[in-house]
Computed example of a mutant assay.
Amino acid sequence: MTSDLSGLAQAELDYRPRWVEPDLADLWLQRLIADTPWTQPRIRLYGRTFEVPRLVAWYGDPEARYRYSGLVHQPLPWSPLLADIRDRLQQSTGLSLNGVLLNFYRDGQDAMGWHSDDEPELGPEPVVVSLNLGATRRFDLRRKGCSRIEHSLPLEHGSLLVMRGPTQHHWQHQIARTRRVSEPRVNLTFRQIIRESI
């Protein structure tokens, strides 16, 4: 496993450590944890219903409804803080972003299972701009149809990971549970919703 993503075939990833200075990242983390109306949705997989192992919130433009894991998420209106972060990201990346999924990992026991961000409303080459605040968590990548982790990357406080191009069609990613982490983490994944999911 390696953190060098430059040779990842059929993928386009750009990792930017320390994209935001630590003091500002600390402030954003504190405000987002305190001010976000977090929910813990229940989803149905393989005939069983269970709560997702993290807290979530979906914000965006009014038309940016988003379906994943069988649930339709109606966007909350942009908060001043999230609108400011989106403006900074759009200037930095040159991308147009109209929605953001916030994931709150309260500690190392909160996680995200293997998946690809390849829902139809994200278009033929989905763009995901992932801002990481708080505890460093390991981001694993594996090829679709394979069980072996091929690459891992520690997503650090204040870092940015941009995924685009064919990445979501050929690769899956996860944030695995770990007993080594007790601190909270908030991950903001900004997206461009091309069309409504319902």
Score class of each variant (00 low, 15 high):
D117H: 09
R180E: 14
A176E: 11
S69F: 07
K144M: 05
F50G: 05
G165E: 12
W38Q: 02
V162Q: 08
A64N: 03
V181H: 07
T136R: 14
L95W: 06
A34V: 03
R106Y: 04
G60P: 02
W19K: 08
N132E: 14
D110V: 04
P17D: 03
H151F: 15
L32T: 00
W171A: 11
S147F: 03
Y15H: 15
D110R: 04
S130F: 08
P184D: 03
P17E: 03
E12F: 10
P166W: 02
H157C: 04
D14M: 06
L45K: 11
T178V: 12
H169A: 13
H115F: 11
G7R: 09
E125I: 10
L161K: 13
L82K: 00
R143K: 10
R148I: 08
L89D: 01
D107W: 06
R195S: 15
Q10P: 06
L32I: 00
I194V: 15
Q168I: 06
G113E: 04
G99Y: 05
R180F: 12
P62M: 08
A11W: 06
Q168L: 10
W58A: 01
S92Y: 06
R18I: 07
E121M: 09
Q109R: 14
W28E: 00
Q168P: 07
W114G: 05
L8I: 14
A111P: 06
D23T: 12
S182T: 14
L71E: 10
F50S: 13
E119H: 13
R191I: 14
T49F: 02
R179T: 15
R143T: 08
K144S: 08
P37C: 03
Q168R: 03
R142I: 06
A135T: 03
P126N: 11
Q91L: 12
F139W: 11
S152T: 15
T178W: 05
H73A: 10
D84Q: 06
P124Q: 09
Q168G: 04
G94K: 02
G113K: 01
D61S: 07
L5N: 04
T39Y: 03
Y68I: 11
H173E: 11
L160I: 02
E196F: 06
I194D: 07
R42M: 11
Q192K: 15
